[in-house]
Amino acid sequence: MRIPCPYCGARSSHEFAYLGDAAPTRPDPSAPDAAEAFHSYVYERDNPAGPMDELWYHSAGCRRWLKVTRDTRTHAITAVAFAGTGEGGR
C-alpha cells in the first residue's frame, strides 16, 4: 500500500506508523464527566466498513502526523492532509 504524503509524495505504507480513528478528540480534563469522556476517548472506537479518517505518522519520512481517509473495505485512500492545523503544524 502507498500513502500519498502531502510533503514527501507517495510512499510505501512501511514508512508510516498507524494510530487509528482520527475522530476522537482529547476531552476537557477538568469537565465533571472527564472520567467517562476519557474512557470513551481512550477505548471506544467505531469500526466502520467504508471510508474512515485515520491518523498515520510518517515516522520514516517528514515526521508529520497525517489524517488519511481510507476505505476500510478496499484500502483505497481518497484524501490525505496534515493532522492538526492542516498546515503541517508549522
Binding site: 510533503y7 517528514c62 515526521r63 508529520r64 496534515f82 498546515e87 503541517g88 503544524g89 508549522r90
Partner: peptide, 11 residues
Amino acid sequence: GLEAVGTGPGR
C-alpha cells in the same frame, strides 16, 4: 556557502 535540504514542513 550553505546547502539546505527540506526534510519536513518548516524543517
